[in-house]
């Protein structure tokens, strides 16, 4: 019973996060997508370009709204799963 309540609560929190993410992503693609962040703009000012990557990551953040939303979901799951495993390892032992 308690586990079901907890699972339902987690599902509601996830749903709320993804609704906010969907809205925020809309604003991101409308206002921010073409601009760099603080470090990227600093590099641009200094005439420094990004060097070749030493590692090729399997995924990216997506080139459009839907792809970004999908990548957000993948990343959310991956980060939550990794954090869960780490915290399980560190949990209080009886």
């Amino acid at each position: 019973m308690s586990a079901t309540v907890e699972a339902w609560k987690c599902a509601k929190i996830c749903a709320a996060m993804f609704v906010l993410f969907a809205m925020g992503l809309g604003l991101y693609w409308t206002f921010s997508a073409e601009y760099g962040d603080g470090l990227e703009v600093t590099m641009e000012h200094a005439g420094v370009s990004e060097g070749e990557s030493a590692y090729s990551a399997p995924l990216g953040y997506g080139e459009n709204y839907l792809a970004s939303f999908a990548m957000g979901a993948v990343g959310f799951g991956a980060v939550a799963a990794l954090a869960f495993l780490v915290m399980e390892f560190l949990k209080r032992r009886k």
């Binding site: 993804f18 925020g24 604003l27 921010s32 601009y35 990343g75 980060v79 990794l82």
Partner: peptide, 12 residues
């Protein structure tokens, strides 16, 4: 953790 990941994707 997952929430912070998606929040970090949203540049303002």
């Amino acid at each position: 953790s997952g929430g912070l990941f998606i929040a970090q994707m949203l540049n303002f």
